[in-house]
């Protein structure tokens, strides 16, 4: 699919971020442009310090850019946009709320009708295999289940834009594969625009329509790669030669920019 021609849902223009510090300015993000086509799954892939999480925070409206604009549906964004779902690396569930009440949090914050959303929350939890755990507390669940609940929370109000900040980074490999499949299924069903931050090359290739490869010091985009494997993709797609070729290509970018192996350590 030619994502470049699809309508841009999120358009990032001339965006930069510099942190002021007593020892001088630190460039977290060099001026960059990026388009997120509506309904596309886009990954930000790079080593720590490449600014991928900063970029996500700016798109979420939690942090302000030093320069440039973000347009969502053509309108310049000021603060957190409407219709935004957010998933963090840690599940950020509230210990004092049951799983169901955690998932209902956005409804309470956005002052939507609880009666209408409660059945939706239950349905969503059932869909994510948490039907028997709705009335449990977060600490009674495993890491994978907790992250599923966090995804349910982000999906409940049916936001059009889903931002995910290394959501599976803290999970073991099995759970991670399982949730990759589940996320793909959900995305195919709902076709939300997803911006997904990861430092795993295979995860980025498996999930994405488009991978934005970033490098550190200063944080910048080095290459944008479209991924065309047909969907739904099985986990075995990772053994295909084309997959390996893409992975090698990305690894070579990292080597060239000093993120992997090559001389420039630090």
């Amino acid at each position: 699919m030619d994502v470049a021609l699809a309508a841009a849902h999120v358009s990032i223009e001339g965006l930069g971020k510099t942190y002021k510090s007593p020892r001088g300015d630190v460039v977290a993000l060099q001026t960059l442009d990026l388009q997120l086509p509506r309904g596309a799954f886009v990954s930000l892939l790079g080593p720590s310090g490449c600014g991928k999480s900063t970029l996500l925070k700016i798109v979420s409206g939690v942090e302000a850019p030093s320069s440039g604009d973000i347009r969502i549906g053509g309108e310049v964004m000021r603060g957190p946009p409407d219709g935004l779902g957010m998933v963090f690396q840690r599940d950020v569930l509230m210990d004092w709320r049951s799983i169901l009440d955690n998932v209902m949090l956005p409804v309470e914050f956005l002052e939507l009708p609880r009666k209408e959303y409660r059945p939706k929350a239950r349905e969503l939890l059932r869909l994510f295999g948490l039907g028997d755990f709705m009335d449990r507390y977060p600490w009674e669940l495993s890491g994978g289940m907790r992250q599923r609940a966090a995804i349910c929370r982000a999906l409940l109000t049916d936001p059009q834009l889903l931002l995910m900040d290394e959501p599976f980074g803290a999970l073991d490999a099995f759970t991670r594969d399982e949730l990759n499949l589940e996320l793909q299924k959900t995305w195919l069903r709902t076709r939300k625009t997803v911006l997904f931050v990861t430092h795993s090359i295979p995860e980025a290739i498996f999930l994405s329509d488009r991978i934005v490869v970033m490098a550190a010091r200063p944080g910048r985009i080095v290459e944008v790669i479209d991924v065309d494997f047909p969907r739904p993709r099985p986990l075995s797609v990772r053994e295909e030669p084309e997959f390996a070729r893409l992975a090698r290509h990305i690894r070579e970018i990292f080597e060239a920019t000093g993120a992997l192996g090559g001389g420039d350590v630090g």
Binding site: P80, M86, V92, L105, P106, F109, L110
Partner: peptide
């Protein structure tokens, strides 16, 4: 938890 505050802010709390 700062992430919890960030979550609240994205939900226009």
């Amino acid at each position: 938890d700062p992430d919890m505050l960030a979550l609240g802010r994205t939900l226009k709390g």
